[in-house]
Design a protein around this nucleic acid. Structure first.
Lengths: 262, 262
DNA sequence: CTCCTCAAGGCGTCTATACATGTTCTATCG
DNA sequence: CGATAGAACATGTATAGACGCCTTGAGGAG
């Protein structure tokens, strides 16, 4: 038998005006933070907690629910509640779209993943023509139809990111950009071959809780926010030649940026 | 009487194997997305929903809880449950620490807020000497004691960001950086006056759910993640002269970055 | 008319119970 | 010895009821 975790939990303070389920959550959170419960460890079962604290099951469930929305634990039906393991994180550097990387013949995501030693995959690729969403149209400076390239990225089998690229039709139509496989170096390499030498990218970073659809697509656990990143690519004429709308599982990424002090 | 929102909600599908509370959440989410319920509007009360759907109150509360963790609604004790208004967002540009801004004599946060027309405030300022946390020490390349400057920023009275700056003691000690008020242009202006001409900043952006302490300090609603930003300032000698650890309310900011394509 | 009290409405917390559904281990059967 | 049925255990969903605290508005006291 392993060490008796439940027996070491703090008792309730009946004089406190802090709600009982919060006190239970506090004591479990404390056990996690102190390392008595490590990553992947199983928490005491609901029944054990009910016995230990002498409360109703719903009270215990409320406490566990709270820890779930905090992203500290995940419940697995029929198995138990577990301290949430921190998944391996991808660190994205701000030079990840630099031309020198493009020359290697790999798209940004693939190149960076392989460098980090994780197995990358791309699936559910959809390429079609459509009217751009309003936010995208504003960035492209046009509401004309665009080519939309949607795909999902996986690390080691886990979906971590969905992305949709929007390229004006007058640029993309009839080129390899309109094909499912855009060729070596990805669409940025194609854009440069087409005479749109890239000058810079503007990225906008937001964070929020996922929509139900995003929870499905990224198989997100409760308590995992998403990073919403919109990147606009500008060529040397100052024209926006692509907008990429990305939803990332927040627990899978660290974004790195270098800012000049000038 | 306003339009009968509760009467327009979809009915339950008893043949579906989707949980009842999820179906109720779906119908409310749908009403919000279709605009039948706008920002700040009051949802039907729990009692009304119980009547409409013919279920137990806990089932309705489960549905509302789900929408809360999705960040779609907020419950206010004694008042009701409301569609969550999107607070005004601050857009932070990647040149916000450029020297030309510093010359104006304002610190970055203040200058940018005023430009955006919102009233900024700084409170709970704490300056002290301490051993740096491990992550900070790694970035500073030293585990020696540092000067820690902690503060909280508010927009229009709402707390939106906490930040702690860490500066090596051999740089900061005895200078105005060690004073509560660092003077015009903030600590970056002082660092340059001390001969540490700034070369660039490295920022790391993460997102996650807030710790209980962060929820307090930023008065966060359920369903609001935080953006965790760690910025390291480098002088022209390549030395890390400051690390700033920032927790931001994710619903209050959009971060903007410009990446060169070179 | 103003202030105060109080009731009603609304969400927060907690108990107790029942059944559904997924997982794991064991004991039995072939 | 291997497969499998089933028990034991785990979380998920739903019901019903009770009481507490906060907010708001109506009505009464002054």
């Amino acid at each position: 038998m392993t060490t008796d975790v439940v027996g070491q939990l703090a008792r309730l303070d009946p004089t406190s005006d802090r709600a009982v389920f919060r006190q239970i959550a506090d004591s479990l959170r404390d056990a996690i933070e102190r390392g008595r419960l490590g990553e992947g460890d199983k928490l005491p079962s609901e029944a054990q907690l009910v016995n230990h604290f002498g409360v109703a099951r719903m009270t215990v469930r409320n406490a566990l629910q709270l820890l779930q929305t905090e992203g500290l634990v995940i419940a697995e039906h029929g198995k138990g509640v577990f301290v949430r393991p921190r998944p391996p994180v991808r660190r994205l550097a701000s030079d990840r779209f630099a031309r020198r990387h493009r020359k290697q013949g790999k798209a940004a995501f693939i190149a960076e993943a392989e460098q980090a030693g994780v197995k990358p995959e791309v699936d559910s690729l959809v390429v079609k023509q459509e009217a751009p969403p309003k936010e995208i149209a504003a960035r492209l400076g046009s509401t004309r139809k665009v080519l939309a390239r949607h795909r999902r990225y996986l690390h080691e089998g886990r979906p971590v990111e969905t992305a949709t690229s929007y390229i004006p039709l007058d640029i993309a139509q009839g080129t390899q950009i309109a094909e499912p496989n855009p060729g070596p170096g990805g669409i940025y390499a194609r854009l440069e071959e087409l005479g749109h030498e890239l000058d810079h990218f503007d990225e906008e970073v937001r964070s929020r809780m996922p929509l139900p659809e995003e929870t499905r697509a990224l198989q997100l656990n409760a308590g995992t926010p998403v990073i919403h990143l919109v990147r606009t690519a500008f060529d040397t004429d100052g024209r926006a030649v692509e907008v990429c709308d990305t939803i990332m599982a927040a627990d899978a990424f660290i974004l790195g940026y270098r800012l000049p002090a000038r």
